[in-house]
Amino acid sequence: MLAVVVAVVFPESAAATTPVPVLAAAALGGLFPDFDLYAGHRKTLHFPVYFSGLAVPALVAAALSPSTLTLSVALFLAAAALHSVMDAFGGGLELKPWLGTSDRAVYSHYHNRWIRPRRWIRYDGAPEDLFAAAMFAVPTLYAYDGTIQLGVYAALGISAVYVLVRKPMVVAAQTVVDAMPEHLVDRIPDRFVEDFR
């Protein structure tokens, strides 16, 4: 969606003429914070303040001198910032966020503390999470066709499957953890088993 906004505001820009690298950078920026899933999730690579602070000058630079490089960097940072900030609008970090027991949504390195979950979207994988993803996808689906459109539909399909398996996945994981020897459970990061003990 960010790349679509840029292409509309600056139709002469690289986003309008060569959208694939710019859209790929925006998509990667949106995914990047979750690369910390197995190592300090929502803390190690989530930087709501710093990504936002870096995105502003990058977006100004891209507006003053639009090119594939400047737009890609700006949209990568903007998407990473948006992801990091939006995680605070959802549920907490616990394995069963629909229970609403966690007071940790995303870590702010700038403030040196956890930001509490707002629960505007109850949890990742809730039906309203898919609805939000679909709403963000609409501009891209309207503006582009071909490979880009297929990529967006694929992402929405993955999101829909995630909504269907989100809760059963936790039940299955609990069954597996309960059957594992304790010495193996001790090797699993605490955040993946703390709700099962």
Rank of each mutant, 00 (worst) to 15 (best):
A14T: 01
A24P: 09
L37C: 07
T18N: 14
A15T: 09
Y38P: 00
A14V: 02
Y38W: 13
L28G: 11
A39Y: 14
G29D: 04
L37I: 12
R42P: 00
E12W: 09
A16R: 08
G30I: 10
F10Q: 15
A15W: 00
A24T: 15
P19Y: 06
L31A: 15
E12Q: 14
S13I: 03
F10P: 01
H41F: 01
T18A: 14
G30K: 08
L23M: 10
F35G: 08
T18D: 15
A26N: 01
A39V: 13
A24N: 10
A15N: 05
A27S: 07
A26R: 00
P33H: 13
A39R: 15
F10N: 09
A26Y: 00
A27R: 00
A24M: 15
D34L: 05
T18Y: 08
D36Y: 06
D34M: 05
P11E: 03
D36E: 07
G30D: 10
G40Q: 12
A26S: 12
H41A: 02
G29N: 06
D34I: 05
G30C: 11
V22Q: 02
Y38L: 14
R42F: 04
E12D: 14
F35C: 10
F32V: 14
A25P: 03
F32E: 10
R42E: 09
P19H: 07
L23K: 01
T17G: 10
P21N: 10
Y38M: 13
P33F: 08
A24I: 13
L23E: 00
A14K: 01
V20I: 15
D36K: 06
A26V: 06
P21L: 08
L28C: 14
P33L: 13
K43T: 11
A16Q: 05
A25Y: 01
V9W: 05
P21C: 09
L28F: 15
S13Q: 04
R42I: 01
V9N: 00
E12V: 08
D36L: 07
L37K: 03
G30N: 11
L23N: 03
T18L: 10
A15P: 04
R42T: 06
A26T: 12
V20F: 14
P33D: 10
F32R: 11
D36Q: 07
A39D: 12
T17K: 06
A27C: 06
T17R: 09
A14S: 13
L28D: 07
H41S: 01
Y38S: 09
R42W: 02
P33K: 05
A25Q: 03
F10R: 14
V22A: 03
D36W: 02
L31W: 14
G29L: 05
T17W: 05
P19I: 02
L28V: 15
V20R: 11
P11C: 01
G30Q: 11
L28I: 15
